[in-house]
């Protein structure tokens, strides 16, 4: 209807002789003047809709993206579930990211499971036995609970170092480096497992000592946390330098003996207990940093094969 009216307007102009002169030439100036004053009527809604629908078919769109028609139909049915095409892509990326994250978590759990399953059978019960003996000695033989805690603090980790580098020690490292779960990943997982196990045992005995003797719980925690982190850093450093199964027992002996000898001085323990908590937290943080640096160093050595280059 509108188109018909427009044609009629031009027809009217032609009839008035403003558009064409005698030689069928357009009088541009006259037309420009006319258009300055010319107004276009806004088309009705249904005409606009038809134009949009016609042009939609020619718009490129990904195969997986729903058509506008589908989206509109869906919106009518359930306005809550409609997602514009661009948001569909964003949502797909987010879903993919969460899937990747979940795969990563499952993978890490799998690595932990394999490491726990194939860790030497003696390690878990022996560590528990060590702590049980410490607790028993404190309860039944009047050992100072703080001394017990200091003595036991890094023992499971030191003991676990035997397992930490077993691949390199027995000559399995080259094979394990070429597996899907590669040696650096295993070693990191094993270190975390050992650390966690040590922390759990330390926390358990701290609670037990708190319940049995009413010791200052947080002070006890800080008292084992500091030596544990430093000893872990030292053990990780030594593990790359010393290839001997004697490293673990030797280190345990050195630590245990050192603690007993040092604490034979009656003034030392009260001095340690008098240290401020802020100071102990700072020391523990520094120890944790050192241990993390050692872990990263070990990881790099294995990843780059530096550990094998030393054999040449």
């Amino acid at each position: 209807m509108q188109r018909a009216e427009t044609i009629r307007e031009w027809q009217r102009l032609a009839q008035e002789g403003l558009v064409q002169d005698g030689e069928n030439q357009v009088d541009v100036e006259a037309l420009a003047v006319l258009l300055d004053e010319y107004t276009v009527e806004f088309p009705p809604e249904e005409v606009l809709q038809r134009a949009v629908e016609t042009t939609l078919d020619y718009l490129p769109r990904p195969e997986s993206t729903p058509t506008m028609e589908q989206l509109v139909t869906e919106r009518v049915r359930s306005p809550q579930t409609v997602t514009p095409p661009t948001l569909v892509n964003v949502s797909a990326s987010l879903s993919s990211a969460s899937q990747t994250w979940w795969i990563g978590v499952r993978r890490q759990i799998q690595i932990f499971r394999v490491q726990t399953q194939y860790m030497a059978n003696w390690f878990w019960p022996l560590s528990i036995l060590l702590f049980a003996c410490g607790f028993w000695a404190t309860v039944h033989h009047g050992a100072n609970p703080y001394k017990t805690m200091l003595f036991l603090a890094p023992m499971p980790f030191a003991l676990g170092v035997m397992e930490l580098m077993r691949d390199v020690d027995v000559g399995m490292a080259e094979i394990e480096l070429t597996c899907r779960i590669s040696l650096p990943q295993m070693l990191m997982s094993r270190t975390v497992l050992l650390g966690l196990y040590n922390v759990i045992l330390n926390a358990a005995i701290s609670v037990a000592l708190y319940v049995a003797f009413g010791v200052d719980f947080w002070r006890v925690v800080l008292l084992w946390l500091v030596p544990f982190t430093y000893m872990a850093a030292v053990m990780l450093f030594l593990a790359t330098k010393v290839r001997s199964r004697l490293l673990a027992p030797f280190s345990m002996l050195m630590w245990g003996g050192g603690v007993l000898i040092a604490l034979a001085n009656p003034n030392l323990l009260p001095q340690l207990l008098a240290w401020s908590e802020t100071w102990l937290v700072g020391l523990a943080a520094m120890g944790l940093l050192l241990a993390s640096l050692q872990m990263m160093r070990l990881h790099r050595m294995l990843e780059r094969g530096t550990i094998f280059e030393t054999a040449h």
Binding site: R166, V170, G171, M172, E174, I175, T178
Partner: peptide, 10 residues
């Protein structure tokens, strides 16, 4: 799959 020249086993 990789078999090194010298290796140890558990």
């Amino acid at each position: 799959g990789y078999l090194p020249q010298s290796f140890g086993l558990y």
